[in-house]
């Protein structure tokens, strides 16, 4: 005899086995980790300005490159994936998320070939950021030009 569950029962069953999300905890962790990355960025910027005498705008660009490089390195070493699973937004919203998605795609698809694997899948995850960033910036710029001449 086939036991056909109705939708209500099924929903209850699904809810029972769903991993419980600890909302408050994940919020706090994201806040702390995201804040920490902002703090580290500020430390890097200030060190570059005071110790190396780099101009302010260049220091921001350097800090961006350093954070991307360290995010990329941590992904390649295999730490980042488990961290992203735990922290989520705290690591994805800073630029580390961008470098993580590019690096993990590069690592995963390299064995499928340099062109068909690495090349064609490189921007699989980060492509949407670049695409929608460029599209929105372009049309907002056109809008600004139309409004203010």
């Amino acid at each position: 005899m086939v036991n056909i569950m109705n939708k209500e029962e099924y929903k209850k069953l699904v809810k029972k086995y769903e991993p419980k999300k600890n909302n408050c905890m994940s919020l706090l962790i994201s806040f702390l980790v995201g804040g920490l990355i902002g703090f580290i960025g500020q430390v890097i910027v200030n060190i570059l300005i005071t110790s190396f005498g780099i101009a302010k705008m260049d220091a921001y660009a350097w800090s961006c490159i350093i954070i991307i490089a360290s995010g990329s390195l941590l992904t390649a070493l295999g730490f980042f994936d488990s961290w992203v699973g735990k922290v989520k937004a705290g690591l994805i919203i800073p630029t580390t998320g961008f470098s993580h998605s590019v690096t993990s795609a590069a690592l995963d698809y390299r064995k499928e070939g340099l062109i068909t694997g690495l090349g064609s899948n490189f921007f699989k995850l980060a492509g949407s950021v670049i695409l929608y960033g460029v599209i929105s910036a372009f049309f907002l710029c056109i809008l600004e030009v139309i409004i203010h001449g």
């Binding site: 990355i37 902002g38 989520k88 994805i92 919203i93």
Partner: peptide, 26 residues
């Protein structure tokens, strides 16, 4: 610290209460 933290916490709220993926939120 506060600005980056708050921005990440807001994104975490989106993750917790919607079905958006990391690609959507970024």
């Amino acid at each position: 610290f506060l600005f980056a933290g708050v921005a990440c916490a807001l994104a975490q709220i989106l993750f917790n209460h919607t079905k958006l993926t990391a690609g959507h939120v970024t």
